[in-house]
């Protein structure tokens, strides 16, 4: 038990912070309840997938600047394909979009491996290309979404034998998030590939000399990042019902949440749970600022400052651990 606590100390601390913030929200606005929690989770959904995408790539020792553009492209692709189409057709659209994300992510990785240009430059270039592609698919917000897809994240999960005011704290969106992340992440982490991802992030040369296929692992890590990005794009379409070709503020938020979640920029350390809780903490902090009746534009400034401060802190920690 103590060992678990020590290993997961950072995550437990974040969880405690999240609970404290929930209490603060409740104190500021006594009517803050299950419904507000549900809308918080729905708002978190795209951020959480962006963070998951960034986490996989950062653990592998890279960084993906194209994550927000990837979400925009997958979102507009889904929205424009589902626009005016039948409900059943959407069953085909979802796997197609996920495969598209996986493929484009793999392309990111392949470009990095074969051009030998650093991650940050390649993904900057693909950021622009994906953005351009999104504009080609749909040059103004539009499209549509299948009804069943939208219903996936609206409402709560009915659990038999529990009273309504307990089940109302389990929004469907939370279930969707947990299931999707677990289905991809747990098998990945337990597999040989997951081990290789941690290995190349920790020390690429050592991993190469121990027989880890560095190139393949890196490509697959970016591919899984792309897959999570596609999920984020789909969740955007789900929650808004349309697709927008202009990328949202997900890049900066994902990097900040990854750092806050205990994943070291530079790779090899950390898990997925920390960053996901961190993104909840960051979103809740924003909700609290809104509850305090602060001008939303000022909220944006405060949020940006928090993100920059977190990233600065993370870089400082990384610098300290390198010099030791």
């Amino acid at each position: 038990m103590m060992r678990l606590l020590r290993q997961q100390g950072w995550v437990v601390g974040l969880l405690a912070l999240f609970v404290v913030l929930l209490v603060v929200a409740k104190l500021i606005q006594p009517s803050y309840g299950a419904g507000d929690f549900g809308s918080l989770v729905r708002a978190v959904l795209p951020y959480a997938f962006a963070v998951a995408a960034q986490t996989v790539v950062v653990i592998a020792g890279g960084i993906d600047l194209s994550v927000a553009a990837m979400m925009a492209l997958t979102s507009v692709t889904a929205a424009s394909m589902m626009h005016g189409a039948s409900e059943e057709y959407a069953l085909l659209v979802v796997p197609f979009v996920l495969a598209l994300g996986f493929g484009l992510g793999a392309l990111n990785g392949a470009l990095i491996v074969f051009s030998r240009v650093p991650d940050i430059v390649v993904t900057l270039a693909t950021l622009f290309m994906l953005q351009g592609a999104a504009l080609l698919v749909l040059n103004a917000p539009g499209g549509g979404s299948a009804e069943w897809l939208r219903n996936l994240i609206i409402g709560t999960v009915p659990i038999p034998g529990l009273p309504d005011d307990v089940t109302s704290w389990f929004p469907k969106a939370l279930l969707l998030l947990v299931v999707l992340l677990c289905v991809v992440w747990i098998p990945l982490k337990r597999s040989r590939l997951g081990l290789s991802i941690y290995a190349i992030g920790s020390n690429q040369l050592a991993a190469f000399r121990s027989g880890v296929p560095v190139a393949r692992t890196k490509i697959l890590a970016y591919a899984f990042g792309g897959l999570f990005g596609a999920m984020g794009g789909l969740s955007l379409t789900m929650s808004t019902g349309i697709g927008a070709p202009i990328p949202g503020p997900y890049l900066m938020a994902s990097v900040a949440a990854v750092v806050l979640g205990g994943v070291v920029l530079g790779g090899g350390k950390g898990g997925l749970l920390g960053p996901i809780i961190a993104v909840f903490v960051l979103r809740l902090a924003r909700t609290i600022l809104t509850l305090l009746a602060i001008d939303p534009n000022v909220t944006a400034i405060v949020e940006g400052t928090i993100l920059v401060a977190v990233v600065m802190f993370g870089a400082f920690i990384a610098m300290r651990s390198r010099s030791r």
Partner: peptide, 17 residues
Amino acid sequence: PEGARRILFGAIILLVT
């Protein structure tokens, strides 16, 4: 279109680098 122009610029950066 604007989208194709962005793709082109991104590709130029990558290729030249």
